[in-house]
Every structure is written in structure tokens, then in C-alpha cells.
Design a protein around this nucleic acid. Sequence first.
DNA 1: AAGATATTTGCAATAATGTTGCAAAAAGGC
DNA 2: GCCTTTTTGCAACATTATTGCAAATATCTT
Lengths: 137, 137
Amino acid sequence: MDQLLDILKKNQLSVTEGRKKILELFLNSPGALAHADIEKNTDASFDRVTVYRTLQTFVEKGIIHNIPTTDNSILYALCKDNCEAGHHHDNHVHFICDVCDKTICLDNVSIPEVKLPKGFKQKQTDVVISGICDECN
Amino acid sequence: MDQLLDILKKNQLSVTEGRKKILELFLNSPGALAHADIEKNTDASFDRVTVYRTLQTFVEKGIIHNIPTTDNSILYALCKDNCEAGHHHDNHVHFICDVCDKTICLDNVSIPEVKLPKGFKQKQTDVVISGICDECN
DNA sequence: AAGATATTTGCAATAATGTTGCAAAAAGGC
DNA sequence: GCCTTTTTGCAACATTATTGCAAATATCTT
């Protein structure tokens, strides 16, 4: 029943206040979160270091993944479906709204095929589209 | 004849040592550069602040553009062709090599069309592919 | 080419962001 | 409930980025 515990246990993580709260944030957030967002929304109940380490752990376990940005920040978003195995399958497009500044995972929009020149071996493809999102339009 | 002066003057920028040297770095670099790379390669002849401001100016003028990354760094690369007008047209794919860690602009690989859900307005599309580049393969 | 004006640079101070070691606290197993 | 393992928080430190202002440099004018 409790989705939080479920996810944590599935990944062999001890259930702690910090992890629960941060994971809850992600579950309730429509878009991606930056480290700063998380610090804000946990109203300083955790040490900065804990947030760093929790995010790192979640990425390693495949609970969240990070999204490329053009500024010097890291955005994190929940992995859907079958990422939890340990390796990521984030084959969806990320959208950044220029108006509300939110980043959204467009789970239904899949990454198109890209043909690379000879000699290049392709492993991961990230697509980030910016513009105006449906809510701000 | 001097490409450096040409670019700077076209963009109504005063020609200074710093700008010349940094722009030269970009012209001689096959891939993208991070702020740290630039500081290294100018062997501390400029203040860090100058580098920051120069990069910012170049981005504003459309001489360089920045490339999304999943770590907390900003990569910059020269804009080709007709970016210089002021707004960017970086419709090429960026490739990050997992081995040599270089980022390369694949000018010949164009960004595929992506259909967004209703309500989304698309402005800029960035595609970042990681894997192994032709030199490391 | 020299002076006047506008722009750019470097320094210093400050802020923001990220990392590491270690002892105390909390979680999981029995 | 006790013991072992894991996680947290603190402190100190390292790195990266920003701002104001005076000095230096570039451009313009004549």
C-alpha cells in the first residue's frame, strides 16, 4: 500500500525519514527537481549533505535520473517503469518551459532514432526541448 | 583576413586580449569547452571573472552556445553558420564521448522532428548523445 | 597621434554549491 | 532489547559563481 516503502525496499535501502520525504517530493512533483528545490521543500529539516547523498543514492539505484541542463544545475526526475532494475531506460523527451521554468518528462514522447556518422557508437540519447508548456500556453 | 577580429567586429565587441585569446581557443578546438578548460588553456593570464564575463558576452552575441550536460557544468561550443545574427540556430546533435570525455558538435547530423503533445509550443531542441567517438573507437 | 569618452579588466569581498572525515544517531536483524 | 550495519549531522574545506568599484585599456573624434 505504501508506495514509498515499496520503492525503498525494492531497492534494498533502509527506510529513513530523509529518504521518505525526498522520495515523496518526487512522487508529488509533476516535473523535475533541482537540488535547491528539494532543500526548499524540506524546509531545512535535513542537512544539505544528506540531500546530496540521498540524491546520489537514488540515482545509483535507478529511482531517479538526471536531466541535462544548459545552466550549471542538475535536475532530477523520477524514473518510470523499468528503470528500477539498476540501469536506466529513460527513452523519453524532456521539456523545459521558458515561462514557468518547470521541467517535465514527456513519457509519451519517445526519443527519435538518430543516425551517427561512421565510427561513432551510440549509447544514450537525451533530448531536451524548450518552449512553452501546456499549462502556460 | 584575421578571422578573430572579423568575428569580434561583426558583433560590435571591442577587441581585447582576453576576447581574442578565448575566441582563438574555440576556433582551434574540435569540441566543446567548459569554463575550466578555458582557465587551464589560458594559463591564468586572465582573471576568472574575465573568463566568466567573456563567455557570457559571447553567448549573448551568439558567437558560442551552450550545451546541456548531466553534470553540473556548462559546456560551450562555437556557433556555426548563421547564429551570429543574435538568435541561435543550433540544429545539430552534440556527442559526448565516454572515453575521451570530449564533446563534439556533429554539424552534419541534424535534429530529428519531435512531435509534442497538444498545448506544447516548441522553440529549441537539444540532442545530446553519449557513447564512443570515432577517434576512441 | 593625443585627448576625451566609453568599455573592459582585475581585485577584493561575498555568495552559492559541492565534498570529505568522523562521531553520534538511527535502522535492520536476531 | 541488544548488537551490527547503515545513515545522519556537524565541521571544515574546496570549488565555482557573482557583484561593486577603481584602474586600465580600447575606441572615437579631431
